[in-house]
Structures are given as structure tokens and as C-alpha cells.
């Protein structure tokens, strides 16, 4: 009986060595959401909703050409340069009515950390400690919502 238990436990024990899941959440992009505050006329309750803007161009420091041109968006996913610890974005936007055009800039710094996910998945650099160094937006106009650069995660909300 004891030998049978011994045999059984070898197989049960060996089965516990599971391969981890290959889920890569790291990204090399900063996601900026455009928001606006609206007030319900009857209840006077304020709420934050997505705001569509026409981005006539968005430039990334280190790249001469525009990253994107003439797009109507509620959020921007802008690439970072992993070789640099600081990146600046220039966003030229126009209101939907076309009445106003404005060029804004925002400069970020970030740190990095390397992680091995699993042998078959590989190793990835995770970017973290995202900070706004300089910006043309006022202090009340933006909010850093996540300091880690992860897929499908908003890093900054800009209130228009």
C-alpha cells in the first residue's frame, strides 16, 4: 500500500510543474485620453465623458515626420523611444467645429524594468514611473492615471 502511495505521489507531484501563461502586458506606448466635463442641465450632476478632437498632426521627438495626421480621435496611443528616458509629444488639434486650432506639447520621463515572463514567451522591458516633466496643458487640465505602460491602459487624461 505504501509503495502504491509512493508511486501515486510521484505522478501527482510531477503534474504540479505547470508552464505559466504567455500573457504579455508590456507596451512601448503612452495612451492619452481626451475628456470633457459635462453638467446635466436638469440634475446639475457633473460627469466626465470622452471628447472627440481632430488631431491635425502629432509629432514625436526624435522623428522628423508626423506620427499621425488629420484623425478624429478620443484617445491617442503614442510610441516611446525605448533608447531614451525622456520623450516629447507635439499635438496639434482642432475643435470639431473647426473654430479653434491649438498646438500643445507634453514631455514625459520614465524608468524601465526587465522581466522574464517564461522561457517560451521571452523577456520584456516594462516601462514605469511615468512622470510629466513639462507641458503646455495647465496643471488642472491633465491627470496621470497610470504610471505603468501597459496594453489597453490609459496613462494620461487630458481635459479639454
Amino acid at each position: 500500500m505504501t509503495r502504491f502511495i509512493l508511486f501515486l505521489m510521484v505522478f501527482v507531484g510531477a503534474s504540479c510543474f505547470n508552464e505559466p501563461d504567455c500573457i504579455i502586458t508590456a507596451t512601448t506606448a503612452i495612451k492619452i485620453d481626451f475628456k470633457q466635463t459635462t453638467t446635466d442641465k436638469t440634475t446639475l450632476v457633473k460627469s466626465v465623458v470622452d471628447s472627440l478632437v481632430i488631431v491635425t498632426f502629432a509629432k514625436v521627438s526624435g522623428i522628423d515626420t508626423s506620427y499621425l495626421k488629420n484623425k478624429t480621435v478620443a484617445s491617442l496611443t503614442l510610441p516611446i523611444n525605448p533608447k531614451s528616458k525622456i520623450i516629447t509629444y507635439y499635438i496639434n488639434r482642432r475643435s470639431l467645429s473647426g473654430a479653434t486650432t491649438r498646438l500643445d506639447s507634453i514631455q514625459f520621463s520614465f524608468a524601465e524594468e526587465s522581466r522574464v515572463i517564461a522561457p517560451k514567451c521571452g523577456a520584456y522591458t516594462f516601462f514605469l514611473d511615468l512622470k510629466v516633466l513639462q507641458t503646455s496643458f495647465s496643471q488642472t487640465q491633465y491627470k496621470v492615471t497610470s504610471t505603468r505602460l501597459l496594453k489597453n491602459t490609459t496613462n494620461v487624461q487630458v481635459f479639454l
Binding site: T28, V60, I63, I80, S114, G122
Partner: peptide, 12 residues
């Protein structure tokens, strides 16, 4: 560890 990562934006 030694590894290679390709960024989201290929020009980098």
C-alpha cells in the same frame, strides 16, 4: 538575461 525587443514604432 540577454534579449531583444522590437518597439511598437519600427523607426526606433
Amino acid at each position: 538575461v540577454e534579449y531583444k525587443n522590437t518597439p511598437l514604432y519600427p523607426p526606433f
